[in-house]
Simulated scan of single mutants.
Amino acid sequence: MATPVLTRQTSPAAPAGGPRPARRRGLTVTPRAFYWMVVPAVALFALLHTVPVLIGVFYSFTDYAGFGSWDFVGLGNFIALLQDDRVLKAYGFTFGFAIVATVLTNLISLAIAVGLNAKIALQSTFRGIFFIPYVLAILVVGYVFQYFFANSLPVIASGIPVLRDNILTNPDWAWLAIVVLAVWQSCAFAIVLYLAGLQTIPAELYEASALDGARPWRQFRSITFPMISAFFTINMVLSLKGFLQTFDHVVALTNGGPGTSTESITLLIFRGGFQGGEFAYQSANAVIFVIVIMLVSFLQFRVLQRKEADF
């Protein structure tokens, strides 16, 4: 009867030119370099983001004015916010502005991207040109637009009653100037995203549809838009979220005026929290605003992704 030979199992050899991966009980041990890179980043993020957020949530349940002593008031700040006409007006302006700007940004950006995609030779050049507004400091650009709306436009469009005077001083139409600035600046990023999506569509689909007699509009409706619906979802969510948090555009053009007709939620939180002695009150406003943005973004994703499935 042959005697069995016992062999010792060894770990697989390390690849040539690289260190042998450390193993413990069959599991790969994470290199120490990973922790040296990740732990400082997580700690810095927690220090500069998470901790201030938790402090703000804590103060939202107090009557802290930003200085001096404070006492707990429970849900008093949140109840008062629901009865504050200025807060409700700011929410109304912010959502109205955000919806209009989001729709215009995506319509204009998609139209430009589709037209630019047909000009293959000029894509790289125009992509760089259209992206310039996104990298410019919005406050600087905003003050340029302010001069244009206040001084140049009344002369250029003197025959139009609404534009004959400085539109920024008109409480009924000042919001339109903010929309123009916001859309002009935001289209840059949206165009680049749509161009990236358009380049993923195989050219054979358009060639086959053209042979079947499909016109450009039918190609867009049946091929282009369904194929870039995921990019449309991302652009819509990012646009609406960004416009709901608008601050620089308002400060540069109207600073919330005339009166409070163009006062956004973020501007109201800044003014009341840091200049008006309402630190705790506006902290509660900020908590509500964060929850609102999260809910709106979640609903957008659910609705738009369901549309993607229908395509």
Rank of each mutant, 00 (worst) to 15 (best):
R164D: 13
L48E: 05
K307N: 08
C187L: 11
A2Q: 07
V114G: 01
A65E: 13
F231K: 02
T62D: 04
G66D: 05
M294W: 13
E204L: 01
M294V: 15
V162K: 00
Y147S: 10
I201E: 04
V183H: 06
T30N: 01
G76Q: 13
L136D: 04
Q245E: 12
D212N: 03
F298N: 11
A150E: 11
V251P: 01
V100I: 15
I132C: 01
L205Q: 11
R271C: 00
P19I: 12
T105V: 04
A118S: 13
N151S: 11
I138S: 09
I129G: 01
F93K: 00
P154I: 08
I108D: 03
V180L: 12
S264T: 15
G68A: 01
H249G: 11
I129N: 06
V192W: 05
E207W: 03
P21K: 03
S152I: 15
R24F: 12
A2M: 08
T10Y: 02
W217L: 14
V38T: 13
P31W: 04
R127H: 04
A98F: 08
Y206T: 04
W175G: 13
T28Q: 12
F67L: 10
D63W: 06
Q305I: 04
F148C: 03
N255D: 15
L181Y: 08
D63I: 06
L238C: 11
T3H: 02
R306N: 12
A113W: 08
A13G: 06
Y147W: 13
F232W: 09
L163R: 03
L47P: 02
N235V: 12
W173H: 11
Q9P: 00
R127N: 09
K119N: 09
P31Q: 07
A252Y: 10
P19R: 14
V42H: 00
Y206W: 02
L238E: 09
